[in-house]
């Protein structure tokens, strides 16, 4: 049988109330409090219960998590469950913190439950399954049952459905689903249209997310000393495309030496970008990666030096999340090479 470990705070762990909120974490064999109820229907044996005071976790989260992770070292478990935390603010944050730490270290699925009004929801919903919990422990039975239902799907390898069906907070992930009723877009369009035009409530199928804004970096103090790198999403690569960067929906990037080069030549470099007419860029790649112009400015002493490598990916159809991941991979190279600024050419 698979194995589970449950995390509870001092109150549900039957240590005490607010006066015991500083309780240092302990691990106990077997099931305490709500863990006993979970064990009845969970498709795993609850082997241990961890109990920790909310203030202990709240005032010293890193050290407390490290202590708990050390307790788990060497134990076999297939899933980690925390809570339910209801509307107890500190408890929700504690559940989120320990679930995130356990998931990162041990790679097992984690499940918790919190009320929508608590801080834990927005802090952790992108990191784990958080079930929509009640606002008081009077609903313990229901919240526990919801946690066990989802945990059993994870244990049994059953596909997890949309957040609304599972009763979870959305994790910032959107996928296409074949509607069970097969209702075509044209009928959904009419429904939404009539509701909106008649002033009735309607539900959009694409809620507008909060847009991530990147702050503008501070200006370079002395351009004459700056080392500048050239990056592009226009797909300029050596003609054999050695990194096999995709023509659209790119997940790959490459960097190519331009040491000593006064420009890129057609026939040696080309574009693999499929989102525009490639003729001009194939004939003269410098229209996208203006190495010729940058060299001229470098010789004039307008800025310090052009970095010896330029970086390439393809922008068409490439998602913002893949682009961010590629940036995280590229940035360490640029830092290691002491690049002061980059020019990003988009197409």
């Amino acid at each position: 049988m698979k194995k589970a470990i449950v995390y509870l705070n001092q109150f549900f762990g039957q240590i005490g109330g607010e006066e015991k909120a500083g309780f240092e974490p302990e691990i106990r064999e077997g099931q305490v409090g709500p863990a006993m109820q979970m064990a009845k229907t969970l498709h795993a044996e609850v082997t241990h219960t961890i109990i920790c005071g909310d203030n202990c976790m709240g005032s010293n989260p890193e050290e407390t998590c490290a202590k708990i992770l050390a307790m788990l070292d060497g134990l076999e478990f297939d899933i980690f469950l925390a809570g339910p935390a209801f509307q107890a603010g500190r408890y929700t944050v504690a559940c989120g913190l320990i679930c995130k730490a356990v998931k990162e270290k041990f790679g097992v699925p984690v499940v918790t439950s919190m009320n929508v009004e608590t801080p834990g929801v927005n802090m952790f919903r992108k990191d784990m399954y958080i079930l929509k919990g009640a606002n008081s422990a009077a609903k313990m039975r229901k919240d526990l049952s919801n946690m066990v239902t989802l945990a059993n799907k994870l244990l049994d390898g059953v596909a997890i459905g949309p957040a609304e069906e599972e009763g979870c907070f959305p994790r910032g992930i959107r996928h296409q689903v074949w509607r069970k009723d097969g209702k075509p877009a044209s009928e959904r369009m009419i429904d939404m249209l009539l509701k909106k035009v008649n002033g009735l409530p309607f539900v959009t199928e694409m809620p507008i997310p909060k847009i991530d804004r990147v702050p503008i970096a501070p200006a370079i103090k002395d351009l004459k000393k700056a080392k500048i790198a050239l990056l592009n999403t226009g797909g300029i690569v050596p003609v054999d495309n050695p990194d096999r960067i995709q023509s659209a929906s790119a997940t790959r990037w490459g960097r190519y030496s331009i040491e000593g080069a006064d420009g890129l030549e057609g026939g040696v470099f080309k574009t693999v970008h499929a989102g525009f007419d490639p003729a001009a860029a194939d004939a003269d790649p410098d229209v996208i990666t203006p190495i010729d112009a940058l060299r001229a400015l470098e010789k004039e002493g307008f800025y310090g030096a052009l970095h010896n490598w330029f970086y390439t990916t393809v922008g068409t159809g490439t998602t913002e999340s893949e682009a961010a991941r590629m940036a995280r991979e590229i940035v360490p190279y640029l830092k290691e090479d002491c690049v002061d600024a980059v020019i990003m050419v988009s197409t």
Binding site: I160, G161, P162, A163, E164, P170, R171, I173, R174, H175, Q176, V177, W178, R179, G182, K183, P184, A185, S186, R188, M189, E205, M206, P207
Partner: peptide, 12 residues
Amino acid sequence: VAGWSPKQMMAF
């Protein structure tokens, strides 16, 4: 998108 689609985007 012309209107046949029985698919819908959903949050997970």
